[in-house]
């Protein structure tokens, strides 16, 4: 199970790097989304996977009999997902604004704030 999740996480990160290197801002954003999901998966797996085991209390409010799921990584994940969502929403809005401003999303051509190549 851990191996599977680790491979999946690695796959997500690899895909995200490919997307982020493409030079298009929209693809970069998708890459970023995949990257944060890959990392979230890694955190979940790092906190040990205990399929089926309840965290803290069971369904009827009893203490779990033998194994207890670690609730902390899930709490961390929840925080990370919420924060990631907010940042992604901002980045998306910025991308839309950038498209309106420049008329394209090619990062290599976004040089308005840079000095001109040659000064005469």
């Amino acid at each position: 199970m851990e191996t599977l999740v680790a491979c999946l996480s690695g796959f997500l990160v690899a895909t995200s790097i490919w997307l982020m290197l493409s030079g298009n801002l929209m693809r970069f954003l998708f890459g970023l989304l995949l990257l944060s999901n890959g990392v979230n998966l890694a955190i979940l797996a790092a906190g040990r996977l205990t399929p089926g085991a309840p965290p803290l209390l069971g369904v009827k409010g009893e203490l779990p009999a033998d194994t207890m799921a670690n609730a902390l990584p899930q709490a961390l994940l929840l925080t990370a997902i919420v924060i990631g969502f907010g940042l992604f929403a901002f980045a998306l809005a910025l991308t839309i604004q950038a498209y309106r401003t420049f008329g394209h999303l090619e990062v290599d051509r976004m040089r308005i704030a840079e000095p001109a190549e040659e000064r005469e």
Binding site: M20, L25, L35, V39, I43, A91, L94, A98, T101
Partner: peptide
């Protein structure tokens, strides 16, 4: 907007790395 695109994208990657490090 031009400056923000570069600032936002690179800083987001840094925070994801930080998160990964903390999680591991």
């Amino acid at each position: 907007i031009d400056g923000a695109v570069k600032y936002v994208t690179l800083n987001l990657i840094a925070t994801v790395l930080f998160l990964a490090g903390a999680g591991l």
